[in-house]
């Protein structure tokens, strides 16, 4: 079953066609890889799905609903969480405070209430434990290493219990031990039923983790299939080598 689908999306920045009639779909409960050379439009596709950019044309469907050009908070509330290529955490808040930001409450009582003595805190601590940075809970987030920031961003997405998680280069600039760790976390969450769409340049990471891989080039999809299939696809090789 398809849970997330982009249909014929186009997006141009000035003269650059970042997305060009691009269609992709993501199967529920699977881990889908999204690869492509630099500048092929992967991040733009994420932005379009999560509402950070508006499409010029095309549609985005999620869980039977149309979410084309919905605002980022709506998309997030509907259960699509994402991380950014250059992590976007709140650098001057502590790690634990970062966790609480994304667990927003909208009742007046919830807003005026504290956040330090609740189940929410318990859950935040568990998730930090889960990704492996619980020891840093009181550190200022801006002082974390690059890899730790990525884990933090991953953890604070999880607190909102998303159904689909989009990761933009989770392994970029991160050392090998941590990459393995991250892989195991993703697999565990996937077993619990969370769908993943992962952009990554680290092929090994993608090949080991993903059920299917979609390849983008010049703003559009050029191939799709199992990791093994895609690896042998001449069009993909050409895309990577041709430029």
């Amino acid at each position: 079953m398809t849970i997330l689908e982009v249909r014929n999306a186009s997006k141009a920045f000035g003269g650059i066609h970042a997305l060009n009639d691009c269609s992709i779909s993501v199967e529920a409960g699977k881990i889908t890889g999204l690869i492509g050379p630099n500048g092929s439009g992967k991040t733009t596709l994420f932005n379009v799905i999560t509402g950070y950019e508006k499409v010029d044309a095309g549609e985005v469907h999620y869980d039977g609903r149309t979410i084309t050009n919905a605002t980022p908070n709506k998309v997030f509330a509907m259960g699509i969480g994402r991380t950014f290529q250059l992590t976007r955490i709140f650098p001057r808040l502590s790690v634990l405070e970062n966790m609480h930001v994304s667990a927003q409450r909208h009742s007046l009582r919830g807003l005026l209430g504290g956040w330090s003595r609740s189940n929410e805190r318990q859950r935040a601590l568990e998730l930090l434990e889960f990704v492996g940075i619980a020891a840093l809970k009181d550190a200022q987030a801006g002082n974390l290493s690059y890899g730790q920031k990525k884990l933090l961003e991953f953890a604070f997405i999880l607190i909102a219990e998303p159904k689909v998680i989009l990761l933009d280069e989770p392994a970029g600039g991160v050392n090998p031990t941590m990459i393995n760790h991250l892989q195991s976390r993703i697999q565990e969450l996937n077993k619990q039923g969370i769908t993943f769409l992962i952009v990554e340049h680290n092929m090994e990471f993608i090949m080991q983790l993903c059920d299917t891989v979609t390849v983008m080039h010049r703003g559009t999809k050029i191939a799709e299939g199992t990791p093994a299939n895609v690896r042998q696809n001449p069009a993909v090789l050409e895309a990577y080598l041709g430029d």
């Binding site: 492996g132 940075i133 890899g147 991160v174 941590m178 393995n180 760790h181």
Partner: peptide, 14 residues
């Protein structure tokens, strides 16, 4: 926890 560091590949912003 596994050792994590920025490593040499992290972008300048980090």
């Amino acid at each position: 926890t596994p050792v994590m560091s920025a490593g040499t590949t992290s972008p300048p912003t980090a």
